[in-house]
Design a protein around this nucleic acid. Structure first.
Length: 496
RNA sequence: GCGGGAGUAACUCAGUUGGUAGAGUCACAGCCUUCCAAGCUGUUGGUCGCGGGUUCGAGUCCCGUCUCCCGCUCCA
């Protein structure tokens, strides 16, 4: 029997509840499942839609952000321009002795300068440099040496193996020399083919991020929507990454949904806007019920090739802190690259100074799937009430898949009929649920477990004075109001 | 990709040295029940993850494979 940590058990309970109640099923389960893919069940899809709706409204209601829904398949050149073709595949090697795996660039960057020099000599770096750069190897810094060597290894299929054979590269873990395999490329982008012929010339990628769909449409949106800089473009959609390993339920999957916004501004405003968006996005998570102590902002020290500043909003999952949203100052990198690769101008005119410039971009990239899981984990609580245990999902009412349950206290005296008619009426404006099976306490608990914030109960008083009780999920307190006010009472309390 | 653990009903699990699958919960149909899951009756549901092998006979033993979890690695 495996020893399982409390946090592991917690995650297992959440996964189990998610399946039992119809939030999340494993993809293709009857065929044994598909690694790292999950399906949203009836309650899951409602909750996910609510989450995306909350985000969409927060973006669009500002007035300075336009929506977009770009195609998942894009021109292959997009990913050359974005740097994904080059940077999204990392050559990796394994140690035959101790089975450790390394990225080649990490291998080089961890080496001593002396070792790098020795390898440079063996790799005949000078001649490689002579026809590409004016520099000589002795002028290169340690970091530059590592970088050049990495790119040489990437270009040559045999170089790394030769260096290993000359016993110049040791495994950092076990220290054995000559045990590393040839580099293998791990391309993190999914590839498919346009048209019925599977041919390299027809290859396209499933987008690894939604951002590029926004960048390539920047000019279209700018001109058609009549927005003035600064303004943003936002988009919700699926992205795909062929991860080596999937992990932790919905957290690391190969197919996931993003909620991305790119805010275009003039250079000079970018640093202020980065801070401002960081705060705006932080507060958005809080407004949906995230407690501040479960969140943290993690600034990136090692920046990606496109970024000037970057950081993540992280949530404390049962397995530890994990990113739920990234905020990046992408500078003018993407637009500049697309201008270069497409030959189309990405510049705008400053009305005051009459100068043309390429806008800077602040990106906020939230994970819809990860956010969903974060709210599920955050909401899950086991409580003891009067000696009995109850499981409750403390979801913000806006996120809750079902807003209200309507229950006849007992199944007689016309209570079921009255309750059914109330439920039919509520159903027109909100997700509601009628339940008459078992004791009322059991029904309350069932609703707690799926996060339903309100339960309306029809009792004998209802029959003669048209009042009902409304029970609130978290406090379990009840108030009695006129049946005619139920709709407005709940509507007021399920808004953001 | 490596190492460890696990996979039996929708969920949580039991199943002895191999002898044609069980419990509780849930769900469903009723009964009971006037406010917080524990009453009664009945019912549905499993080729024991999948595929091979050994055997007269495999949930149980062996091999392969898939999936989930943990660690390493990875996470532009």
């Amino acid at each position: 029997m495996a020893t399982t940590s409390p946090s592991q058990q917690l995650l297992e309970k959440i996964v189990s509840l998610a399946k039992r109640r119809g939030f999340i099923f494993q993809s293709s389960e009857i065929y044994g499942g598909l690694n790292g893919c999950w399906d949203y069940g009836p309650l899951g899809v409602e909750m996910l839609r609510n989450l995306k709706e909350a985000w969409w409204r927060a973006m669009i209601s500002r007035g300075d952000i336009e929506g977009l829904d770009a195609s998942i398949l894009m021109h292959p050149r997009v990913w050359e321009a974005s740097g994904h073709v080059q940077n999204f595949s990392d050559p990796m090697v394994d140690c035959r002795e101790c089975k450790s795996r390394y990225r080649v660039d990490h291998l080089f960057s961890e080496m001593s300068e002396k070792r790098l020099k020795a390898i440079s000599k063996a790799a005949n770096l000078e001649s490689a440099l002579s026809h590409t750069l004016v520099m000589e190897s002795k002028d290169l810094t340690k970091e530059q040496l590592a970088e050049v060597l990495t790119s040489m290894v990437e270009k040559s299929s045999t170089l790394f193996a030769e260096l290993v054979a000359k016993e110049l590269i040791a495994c950092p873990n076990c220290g054995r020399v000559g045990m590393l395999t040839e580099p293998r490329n791990f391309n993190l982008m999914f590839e498919t083919y346009i048209g019925p012929v599977k041919d390299a010339a027809n290859a396209v990628y499933l987008r690894p991020e939604t951002a590029q769909g926004i960048f390539v449409n920047f000019m279209n949106v700018w001109q058609s929507a009549r927005q003035k800089i600064p303004f943003g473009i936002c988009q919700i959609g699926k992205s795909f990454r062929n991860e080596i390993n999937t992990k932790n339920f919905l957290f690391r999957t190969r197919e996931f949904e993003q909620m991305e916004m790119q805010f275009f501004c003039k250079r000079g405003m970018d640093e202020h806007l980065f801070e401002s968006w960081r705060e705006t996005r932080w507060n958005w998570w809080l407004a949906l019920g995230m407690p501040e102590h479960k969140l943290r902002f993690h600034p990136h020290e090692k920046l990606a090739h496109y970024a000037k500043a970057a950081g993540d909003i992280e949530f404390e999952f049962p397995f530890g802190f994990g990113e739920i949203e990234g905020i990046h100052n992408r500078t003018d990198f993407d637009l500049t690259r697309h201008q270069e690769f497409s030959g189309k101008s990405m510049q705008v005119l400053d009305d005051e100074t009459k100068e043309k410039y390429t806008p800077y971009v602040i990106e906020t990239a939230a994970g819809a799937s990860r956010g969903f899981m974060a709210f599920l984990c955050n909401g899950y609580k086991e409580e003891t009430v009067n000696g009995e245990q109850r499981t409750v999902l403390r979801l913000h009412p806006f996120l809750a898949p079902i807003k209200v349950a309507v229950l006849p206290l007992v199944n007689k005296d016309g209570m079921p009929e009255l309750a059914q008619s109330l439920e039919r009426d509520l159903r027109k404006t909100m997700r509601s649920f009628y339940d008459d099976s078992g004791a009322v306490g059991r029904r309350y608990r069932r609703m707690d477990e799926i996060g339903t914030p309100f339960a309306v109960t029809i009792d004998s008083d209802t029959l003669h004075d048209q009042t009902v009780t409304i029970r609130e999920r978290d406090s379990m307190q009840q108030v009695r109001i006129a049946m005619g006010q139920v709709k407005s009472y709940i509507a007021e309390r399920i808004t953001l």
